[in-house]
């Protein structure tokens, strides 16, 4: 599969994603500079983590207007698979492809640690290798991961099984104590209504090889590749 990784000034997880996809999984990863205008030939797109444009104004707010984003929106609109990790998730929120916004972490600190998340929906192109309720341990590294949306949208997210990951403890319990950043309903990742776009704050690409003693991130990338193998993204005519 050809997976395009969009590179913004300040992206710093782009190479980690490419390493996992190509060196670990044998897929083809292609870097796409944010000034480009086409994602032609790509089967999936990743908006990687980092600090695009120095997080000026708001996280993801300026990256959202990069020239490539029109192509990404168009790709997502015709069912293309898009994964936004951390800063990439923040961009998807700023774009309005996913609902809501990120606030500063409840305790104002930048949190960089491993955290447990529970798979709330295993029936997505990003989680089909997981069991329902499976617990993954993945690193988080952010200052603005405190997910917020209005009560109406939250109800819709809950009703449509759009909440894909929630912060939990080792046993999978979801409580306010297991919420690292104050995120509404312990949300760590959500998908769009159509199901082809996922944003999550944890970093699967930083925990996807034996050498690092944690391969939980591979569940997400393997799910994506399996989903693509059964249902390729339609290319534009």
């Amino acid at each position: 599969m050809n997976i395009g990784i969009i590179v913004f000034p300040g992206s710093n997880c782009d190479r980690d994603c490419a390493h996992v996809l190509s060196d670990i999984m044998g897929q083809t990863a292609e870097f796409i500079w944010h000034q480009e205008r086409s994602v032609k030939g790509m089967d999936a797109i990743i908006l990687p983590g980092g600090f695009s444009y120095g997080d000026y104004l708001r996280t993801g707010a300026i990256a959202r207007f990069s020239p490539i984003m029109e192509a990404v929106v168009e790709f997502a609109g015709r069912g293309g698979m898009v994964l936004g990790i951390c800063n990439g998730f923040q961009m998807l929120l700023e774009l309005g492809i996913l609902p809501g916004a990120m606030l500063r972490n409840r305790d104002l600190s930048f949190i960089c640690e491993d955290h447990y998340i529970r798979v709330e929906n295993a029936n997505t192109p990003f989680t089909n290798h997981c069991k329902p309720g499976q617990i993954l341990k993945l690193p988080i590294a952010h200052a603005e991961g405190n997910y917020y949306t209005n009560p109406v949208t939250l109800s819709a997210l809950q009703a449509n099984a759009q909440i894909v990951f929630r912060y939990c403890d080792r046993e999978g319990k979801v409580t306010s104590q297991t919420n690292p950043n104050g995120s509404l309903d312990n949300i760590a990742g959500i998908r769009n209504a159509a199901g082809n776009v996922l944003g999550l704050m944890p970093h699967p690409e930083r925990a996807a090889e034996h050498l690092l003693n944690n391969e939980d991130g591979l569940y997400i990338f393997r799910s994506m590749v399996s989903a693509l193998e059964t249902h390729k993204t339609p290319q534009p005519v």
Partner: peptide
């Protein structure tokens, strides 16, 4: 369009 995120 840019300066404020009217969600929050």
């Amino acid at each position: 369009k840019l300066l404020a995120n009217t969600v929050i």
